[in-house]
């Protein structure tokens, strides 16, 4: 397969919240990139920094208390972290679009669906006639599979079901033909049968329109089903990155392995679930060493003394764990002990 160009690259991103309890490095030195037309997944448990990462890309980190304190976000030869708000607003409207977990909070309850869609078209196509704008809105609604598009144009958000609202949000995000679509937990609030419809829609749109998608989720099933490449985050850091097949067939980081072992599988009964002991640390509470060390069954001295870097384990697979330091590899048995 031909290597596709990197369209968005995040380098050494650090986003910090300055709170009364001190500095919270919610995202700490994160690197990853999205290639043209690919679906990249970011997966991790609650609070690991997924949403803050996506808000950082969009220039929407609530400030104060939040601030990008380090790093670059490269998009088409510009560093988004350095752009003035006016420029950033243009990028948000045209090149990078985002959909959120709860569509209701991003739709205005007072206006009809048609109103909101047409307003969004108007922003990008200032010289279009009313008719053109209306037609584009209806066309987008049909594209995302909304039934009776023309009728829905006259309805208000509360008259739609959750799945329909999420489709409207996707339609709105795609109006301007973005190059990158960031979807932050787009199906978490939906039922599984509706989730299946929305994921299929996102996959189809990615294929048809060649929009690159950054899909953020805590659901490993959603990742396996939708993404080509995966970034696993833990406590504000990327701990593993690789093609989806590699991550699921050959998970390397002890956290990724623990996570995969602990998910009940709908297809068969596991006698007992593997359970990672302990809890996710508060961001900022572990200053040196591997952030997973307090919960890791493989932890050894070095893990609390030094912070592990990302080791390149195969051409496309990276892992932040000392077990994959070529110098250590011989010394350790990496078999997970199932309780």
């Amino acid at each position: 397969m031909l290597e596709r160009e990197k369209i968005l690259e995040v380098k050494g991103l650090q986003t910090t919240f300055f709170t009364d309890d001190g500095e919270v490095p919610a995202v700490d030195n994160v690197d990853f990139h999205i290639r043209e037309g690919e679906v990249l997944g970011i997966v991790g448990e609650s609070g690991c920094g997924k949403s803050v990462t996506s808000l950082s890309i969009m220039g929407l980190v609530p400030s104060p208390p939040g601030k990008i304190t380090n790093g670059e976000i490269l998009f088409e030869d510009q560093d988004l972290t350095k752009l003035p708000e006016k420029k950033m607003r243009e990028i948000r409207g045209n090149d990078i679009a985002m959909i959120f977990q709860e569509p209701m909070t991003s739709l205005n309850p007072l206006f009809t669906i048609g109103n909101q869609l047409q307003e969004a078209v108007k922003i990008h196509k200032k010289d279009w006639s009313k008719k053109q704008i209306y037609n584009r809105a209806v066309e987008m609604m049909k594209l995302v599979g909304l039934p009776r598009a023309e009728g829905l144009m006259k309805e208000h958000p509360h008259q739609l079901s959750g799945g329909m609202r999420q489709r409207v949000m996707i339609a709105m995000a795609l109006l301007c033909d973005p190059k990158v679509l960031i979807a932050d937990e787009p199906t978490t609030a939906l039922d599984v049968t509706i989730q299946a419809q929305i994921l299929k829609l996102i996959k189809n749109l990615n294929k048809e329109l060649n929009t690159a998608v950054l899909l953020i989720t805590h659901d490993l099933g959603v990742v396996a089903e939708t993404c080509e490449r995966v970034v696993v985050m833990y406590a504000g850091k990327v701990v593993e990155e690789g093609p989806v097949d590699a991550i699921f067939k050959d998970p390397q980081h002890p956290y990724t392995r623990g996570l995969l072992e602990s998910v009940p599988d709908m297809r068969f009964k596991k006698e007992r679930l593997y359970s990672i002991p302990g809890n996710v640390p508060k961001p900022g509470s572990i200053k040196t060493g591997c952030r997973f060390a307090p919960r890791c069954e493989f932890a050894f001295d070095r893990c609390v003394e030094e912070t592990p870097p990302l080791y390149q384990t195969t051409e496309e697979h990276q892992t932040r764990c000392f077990l994959f330091d070529p110098k250590e590899a011989e010394k350790h048995d990496r078999t997970i002990v199932k309780s």
């Binding site: 599984v192 989730q195 659901d219 099933g221 396996a224 699921f248 709908m266 297809r267």
Partner: peptide, 14 residues
């Protein structure tokens, strides 16, 4: 049947 096939499975080969 529909419910069971709608659940995303944590296995890309599935």
């Amino acid at each position: 049947q529909a419910l069971l096939t709608a659940v995303p499975v944590p296995d890309p080969a599935f």
